[in-house]
């Protein structure tokens, strides 16, 4: 199929509030495309528009080759599925009843339905819980049930809105494994999350969004390379962070490649001479006395994201552009 989703200048306003602003992107078949951004960034709004739950104020979007304003009238709606942040299950029905009902709602016949229900329940580790009512399941199991139900129509495109929200580490890890499996099976997935590890571990490409605007977009490697490079210095201070910041400002004037962001008493510094900078800091006794931790880390999506959305944390103004617009 090629392009599965195509958005052009998509905008949504709720009264005076601009939920999303001129958002354009495409998603290709088989991708796990992640919408990454802080809470309230506009991720869910984009998903709701693309699943026909909300109409866009302006702009154009096509899902599975159908204009989104027509999607609910088109048979293509049967080929997309979504799992919202809330658990989308019938609480008073058992696991098996929930899954079976969703299969029936997609017109699956008895034999096929039975096979599929058993297979899905087994694949997602809910075997042995078939007769349990949904409201008696743990958060992780309930989320899995939501996902199973969303997969009953073998969707060409699956939307997952913050699927790991509210799950403990164990449940989250298991769910991420399931998502990897789905991705490897060729399902095109659009995932929203505010968790970097999730995005970094799963995504083919990431769209970073903040306050309704695209901050950046690309593969994980591209984003890291663009915003932090291979290494980043993380420094945590106990007090007198201002002295350290003054030191960094001085260094920044000397080296245009150096940049940093400050989150309270923790600094993330990127530089082409990161080892030398660390040695230099270690020689300054006045600062060293206040340093609680200092280490050089491999540049990751988390650090990239912090640099991209730095206006949330400090007053320094950063003009952010998408990779596409940079290229233009």
């Amino acid at each position: 199929m090629g392009t599965v989703v195509e958005c052009k200048n998509l905008t949504k306003k709720f009264g005076d509030f601009q939920a999303i602003d001129n958002v354009s992107f495409t998603v290709e078949e088989g991708e796990l495309f992640t919408l990454l951004g802080p809470n309230g960034a506009g991720k869910t709004t984009i998903v709701k528009i693309l699943t026909g739950q909300l109409s866009a104020t302006s702009g154009r979007a096509e899902v599975l080759g159908v204009n989104i304003s027509e999607i609910l009238k088109s048979d293509m709606k049967y080929k997309l599925s979504y799992v919202p942040q809330e658990h989308l299950v019938w609480d008073d029905l058992t696991v098996q009843e929930n899954v079976s009902l969703m299969g029936k709602l997609y017109g699956l016949k008895k034999v096929e339905l039975q096979k599929k229900v058993s297979k899905m329940i087994e694949n997602f580790g809910l075997k042995g819980h078939e007769k349990k009512r949904a409201d008696k399941l743990s958060g992780g199991m309930k989320r899995k049930l939501s996902i199973i139900m969303a997969l009953m129509n073998d969707p060409l495109l699956l939307f997952l809105d913050e699927p790991t929200t509210g799950l403990d580490v164990h449940a989250r890890t298991l769910l991420m494994e399931d998502l990897k499996r789905l991705k490897n099976a060729g399902t095109t997935i659009i995932l929203t999350t505010h968790l970097m590890e999730e995005a970094e571990a799963l995504s083919s490409r990431v769209l970073i969004i903040n306050k309704g605007k695209i901050v950046s977009m690309g593969t994980v490697e591209e984003l890291i390379q663009s915003y932090v490079g291979e290494k980043v210095l993380q420094v945590g201070l106990t007090k007198d962070s201002d002295d350290f910041e003054r030191f960094l400002k001085t260094k920044k004037k000397e080296n245009a490649e150096l940049d940093y962001i400050r989150i309270k008493d923790t600094f993330f510094v990127k530089s082409d001479e990161i080892t030398r900078l660390m040695d230099e800091i270690m020689k300054i006794e006045a600062i060293m006395g206040d340093i609680m931790e200092m280490n050089i880390k491999k540049g990751g999506l988390k650090e990239s994201f912090l640099f991209m959305t730095r206006e949330l944390y400090d007053n320094s103004t950063v003009i952010v552009e998408t990779k596409e617009s940079e290229e233009k």
Partner: peptide, 10 residues
């Protein structure tokens, strides 16, 4: 819970 909206896709 959004089930009603979800049913619109079925």
């Amino acid at each position: 819970t959004g089930l009603l909206k979800r049913l619109k896709l079925t």
